[in-house]
């Protein structure tokens, strides 16, 4: 009798343990693939990209519409790295995370800056902050020319297509950029405007929300509105 009770107890105990392990595995798997707040990502996309009322977007132009480079029709974004390894690493990381080829690393590599009409040019040591001031926090910025904060006039059109020449300025006399900062600045160049939680807030240069925002900007259609955006997890 005692042996039979002990056996039943052991079988029950094993069943409880197995159930616990299965539940843990299911929860862990869900967490790895879809644990994010869709509304928070939509809010961030609206703040940083759809809303054209704040810098660098142009008031009234493609307001409430998704704005980005048109890879499908215009081709990958030409990039002139100028030998800045950190920038190449940032581009690698962005393409890996998004699972897409975004950059054309060859076509303007040896082209004089003045002749580049579409693409991103990396410039080292030329970052400046608001008002042209260099602070200890001036580690990178994106602009129409080195040592400037303004974007090129008309850098995107009414449909939301970015088609311009942008400089990604990395490092200044008071700050040396690291990989996260380089990725952050490339994020701006790819179509992220205002900072949001997870992108240049007081806690992080970039975090998981940054990647989700960038990924979903490049998987949704140019011109899309908030209501038409389909928010997906990273590949």
């Amino acid at each position: 009798m005692m042996k039979r009770n002990a056996a039943r107890w052991l079988v029950g105990f094993a069943a409880v343990c197995l159930t616990g392990i299965i539940v843990w595995m299911v929860l862990n798997q869900r967490g790895a693939t879809s644990a994010f707040d869709t509304t928070a990502i939509l809010d961030a996309i609206e703040k940083t990209n759809l809303d054209s009322t704040k810098f660098p977007w142009l008031a009234g132009i493609a307001h409430s519409n998704l704005k980005r480079w048109d890879i499908a029709n215009d081709g990958p974004i030409p990039v002139k790295f100028n030998g800045v390894v950190l920038a190449e690493m940032a581009a690698d990381e962005i393409e890996t995370k998004l699972g897409q080829t975004l950059f054309d690393r060859i076509s303007i590599a040896d082209t004089p800056d003045d002749l580049v009409t579409r693409g991103i040019i990396v410039s080292e040591g030329t970052a400046v902050g608001r008002g042209g001031v260099v602070r200890s926090s001036t580690c990178g910025n994106v602009s129409q020319s080195p040592g400037d904060t303004a974007y090129p006039p008309g850098f995107y059109d009414a449909t939301g297509v970015i088609d311009t020449r942008l400089y990604v300025n990395l490092s200044s006399a008071k700050c040396t950029a690291d990989l996260d900062i380089a990725i952050h600045e490339f994020g701006h160049a790819l179509g992220l405007g205002r900072h949001f939680k997870g992108f240049g807030d007081m806690f992080s240069v970039i975090d998981d929300d940054f990647w989700l925002v960038l990924y979903n900007i490049y998987t949704n259609e140019i011109g899309a509105t908030r209501e038409s955006l389909a928010i997906q997890p990273l590949p």
């Binding site: 054209s52 009322t53 704040k54 810098f55 660098p56 977007w57 142009l58 008031a59 902050g129 608001r130 008002g131 400037d148 904060t149 303004a150 974007y151 405007g193 205002r194 900072h195």
Partner: peptide, 12 residues
């Protein structure tokens, strides 16, 4: 400041 009036990010 409204967008377009300044050439840098400004917190709201």
């Amino acid at each position: 400041t409204p967008g377009g009036s300044i050439a840098w990010q400004q917190d709201a």
